[in-house]
Design a protein around this nucleic acid. Structure first.
Lengths: 244, 244
DNA sequence: AAATATTTGTCCGTATGTATC
DNA sequence: TGATACATACGGACAAATATT
């Protein structure tokens, strides 16, 4: 059968080829009852069985990979992944994102309730190694802060600073074994990132102090101090002009 | 610069090229404030600006397309789509078919913290009309419950019942003007619903009572009673065997 | 420890279907 | 009708990462 003819046949079906392939592979995973860790056939094999080119197959595979359903590595193959709600919430929030001020307030309010609501779970799950990781993130923030203060600009851009901040809160909750919670918190960080590109350096300094206080409380294994430090962190961030 | 060198440079970043492109295009849509109907540059143009091959770009575009963010047509171009959560829930269901109880527990824990955390905002934002709507949802639940009790089966299927339940909680928070909160709660409801297809009728009865108690508190404009009723709602739901 | 095989990652080129003017 | 612009699909080649012997 010639190239032209096969093209013609496929066009009878309205759904595009790579989408059909996407569906077929997903159904294949269900039918074969593949579990996380199991492998798909190689790209070449699937091309042969499905009768499509490698490019089309890869478009489908990459969509599956970005959706978090599979993961592909050179020399290994394509491996089924454990369910991870990251993609779900990231895409959900992506569609909610607006540039209004209120959106930032909304996300912050949700973050505040979630993080404060899971304080106990966080506290109980943290290990010494995690507390050290938290401290090193604070040190990173501190270093950036000092450098920027030296340059003496009122406004300063801090993607690195925010990354450390995000990492800090990520560590706080990663051991709670609630992937839904972690995904939501991460997704919020992700969509805030595009907005908060510039902050005043004086807020940076106060932010560092707030996080250092959290670490101190954790080092003492004092839940009440931890709770107070976390509330302080969020409440002051709320009313951004209130004095120390 | 040779092919080999560029490859080498790119490998310094761990994230794969097509994923970077996926991220960049998504960020581009946000940054340019593109709305549904607007068009992306052509594939060729984007390849040039991003400095990647057509295959890599297409893998990213196809992932965006399957995710429902864009739609591409020959002779036209790549068009931004209105948000349609179908794909998200489809992948969600796909994952839940095989997944365990733990995910359900996680979602419930998050819902509990969020709803209880925004109690005050809910209470303050509710109007008389909303309270009437809440009551009518409870009446729907009640009616379904009575019908099922008459048929005297221990197990009964209740998609309608759950829809009323979801609607109830939706109404509670819709006036808080926090779309992020509402979206999360709705998304989580979808997760729950796919699992809990069958419930025992005695739980249905107790669920109706819990919701009626919430409405009663709201009718009296008594925040403390509302708070107690809501806590009761979630706590009993937690330990599903505890007596009334 | 080193060579080899396997598999994915990336690039290029070409032909075809489709919508618009 | 024809021309143009665009996405769709195919094939081949080599690089890079991993596993295996």
């Amino acid at each position: 059968m010639s190239y032209k003819q096969t093209i013609g046949m496929r066009n009878l079906k309205s759904r595009k080829l790579y989408m059909q392939v996407y569906d077929e592979i997903r159904d294949y995973i269900l039918q074969q009852r593949l579990s996380p860790g199991d492998k798909l056939p190689t790209e070449i094999e699937m091309c042969a069985t499905l009768g499509v080119s490698r490019n089309v197959l890869r478009e489908a595979i990459k969509a599956l990979e970005i959706a978090g359903i599979v993961s592909s590595k050179p020399g290994v193959g394509i491996v089924i992944q454990e369910f991870n709600p990251d993609f779900l919430f990231q895409t959900l929030f992506y569609n909610l994102t607006s540039d209004s001020e209120s959106f930032l307030e909304q996300t912050l309010a949700v973050r505040r309730i979630l993080e404060l609501g899971f304080l106990r779970e966080s506290f109980d799950s943290l290990k010494e190694a995690n507390i050290d990781q938290l401290e090193s993130q604070v040190n990173i923030m501190d270093k950036i802060c000092r450098e920027k203060l030296g340059s003496a600009n009122e406004f300063t851009f801090g993607p690195d600073f925010y990354q450390a901040d995000a990492c800090f809160h990520n560590i706080l909750y990663q051991n709670t074994n609630n992937t839904v919670l972690c995904s939501i918190i991460n997704a919020i960080w992700y969509c805030d990132r595009s907005h908060k590109k510039a902050i005043r350096s004086k807020y940076m300094e106060s932010t560092v102090n707030k996080h250092r206080r959290i670490v101190s409380a954790l080092k003492m294994h004092d839940f009440d101090a931890f709770s107070i430090a976390m509330h302080h962190h969020f409440n002051v961030e709320y009313k951004s002009e209130s004095p120390e």
